[in-house]
Each structure stands twice: as structure tokens, then as C-alpha cells.
């Protein structure tokens, strides 16, 4: 088993209003089988033993499905691996003596709460603006009571895999949330259950997205590259054409 000594440069910020700064920590004996978050746990245990304030970071499932563990590692949202959340990134990616820069997601709409933890409630407000259907769907329906073609089902499912992590915003040079919003719009807009409110949904969610202060898409495609779930830019095209339809109606 390989172990390594790392130099970590981590963004430290006491609270929303405090002035943050990068701080440097040396961490020895990091084992290659650790996940990136486990490496941070080890650092925090060390800091606590030294009577210092541990590094605050978000995490929950640690299995790549909740989307909590957002941070930017060496300039890449969720680190250098494609289609991977930070909790699924493992230390075998790094080697002895490496320097690692760890920063919070940066966007005006995602203010830093503490260290690496940012406030992503802007996403919740966008969902509240229209990312749902307004009927009671009851229990789990029997299979095939509503018939949906295979291709449509697959496209809707692919859009629905968005875990709301915000890596798209963190990566986008314009801090645009359009990949996230389009995934939520497309997931419902492709299915029959989403049709009655389809036009209103697009208008409401986009209005909320604008209100939160996210930037505009330049069709650069960085979001698609960094998205841990591989959400496709096709969803942005779907959102834009639905928005145009809503305008013309």
C-alpha cells in the first residue's frame, strides 16, 4: 500500500462575511485507498488534536448520489476524474509530494458559509418555482399504465439523474446554472405527467434562476464535461426551445 505526504492549500473562511484566505497544511501518511473526503477527515482529526478549527466541508452519502460534497480541487469541480463526485475521488490519483489546492464552489449565487461549504439554497428556490407537477400522484403506479416510448423514457431518466450538486455552476466561466435548470425542466417536460404545466414551469424556473444572479450560458460546454452525472447540453437546447414556445403561446 502506497502512502504519501501532501501539501494542502485550503480556503479558510470563518463565516459568510469574513475575509477568507488560502492556508497551507502538511499531511503525512495519506493512504492511496482513502477517498478524498477521508483524507480531509484525517486532516481534521489532526487539526482537532492540535486544538485548531477543523476544515468545514459538505458531505452526506459518500457514495456519489447526494451531491453534497462540492469543492474545487486543483481548479476542477469534484477534482480531476470525469463523472465523479469528490467522495468518489480516491487518493491513488495523487502521488507523494503533490500540492493540492482546495477551494469552495465560486458563484455570487453560492455564497460561502464556512471554509468549503457554500449555500446552494438558490437551487432549492429554483425547484420550488416549478420543478414539480401539481397533482397528487398517489402510490407507486403499476408498470406501463402510462405508456412512454423507450427513447423518451431514457432521455427523461438521463435528465433526472442530476443530483443538484452545482458542479456545473462552479465550473462554468459565467457561473451559469443553465445545465442544472435545463435538466430539471427536461426531465419533467419529456414525460406526459409534465405536460400540463410545461410552459409555466419553464417561465417560472428561468425567472427564479435569473433572480438568483447566475450568469448566462455561452455554450462553452464545461458544465457537461465536469458534471458527475454526464448531464447533456441537449437539455439546454430543450429548455431554450421550450422557452421560445412559451413566448410564442
Amino acid at each position: 500500500m502506497r502512502t504519501m505526504k501532501l501539501t494542502l492549500h485550503i480556503w479558510r473562511q470563518e463565516n459568510r462575511n469574513a475575509q477568507g484566505r488560502m492556508e497551507t497544511y502538511l499531511l503525512d501518511g495519506v493512504n492511496e485507498h482513502m477517498s478524498f473526503l477521508e483524507m480531509l477527515d484525517v486532516l481534521n482529526e489532526k487539526l482537532i488534536k492540535e486544538g485548531k478549527d477543523p476544515v468545514a466541508f459538505d458531505h452526506d452519502c459518500r457514495e456519489g448520489i447526494c451531491g453534497s460534497c462540492g469543492m474545487v480541487i486543483n481548479g476542477r469541480a469534484h477534482g480531476p476524474w470525469y463523472r465523479t463526485t469528490t467522495c468518489q475521488l480516491h487518493m491513488r490519483e495523487f502521488k507523494d509530494g503533490d500540492e493540492i489546492y482546495i477551494e469552495p464552489f465560486r458563484a455570487a449565487a453560492f455564497p460561502v458559509i464556512k471554509d468549503l461549504v457554500v449555500d446552494r439554497s438558490a437551487f432549492d428556490r429554483i425547484i420550488q418555482a416549478g420543478g414539480y407537477i401539481s397533482v397528487n400522484t398517489g402510490g407507486v403506479p403499476d408498470a406501463n399504465t402510462i405508456r412512454i416510448g423507450k427513447e423518451t423514457a431514457e432521455q427523461a431518466f438521463a435528465a433526472a439523474t442530476c443530483i443538484g450538486c452545482g458542479a456545473c455552476v462552479a465550473t462554468c466561466k459565467n457561473a451559469s446554472a443553465m445545465l442544472f435548470v435545463s435538466a430539471k425542466i427536461a426531465h419533467l417536460g419529456l414525460l406526459p405527467q409534465g405536460q400540463p404545466e410545461r410552459m409555466q414551469r419553464v417561465l417560472n424556473m428561468i425567472a427564479q434562476m435569473d433572480k438568483e444572479g447566475f450568469g448566462n450560458c455561452t455554450n462553452t460546454g464545461a458544465c457537461e464535461v465536469e458534471c458527475p452525472k454526464g448531464i447533456s447540453l441537449v437539455n439546454i437546447a430543450r429548455m431554450n426551445s421550450d422557452f421560445l414556445m412559451a413566448q410564442l403561446k
Binding site: M22, E103, A108, A175
Partner: peptide
């Protein structure tokens, strides 16, 4: 608007 959407950039580019 895009500039304002990220007032603070990343240290590591």
C-alpha cells in the same frame, strides 16, 4: 452579467 456572477475567482486555474 457573467462577470458579476462570479465576483471571486479561483486561485488555481
Amino acid at each position: 452579467q457573467n462577470r458579476n456572477a462570479r465576483p471571486q475567482g479561483y486561485v488555481f486555474q
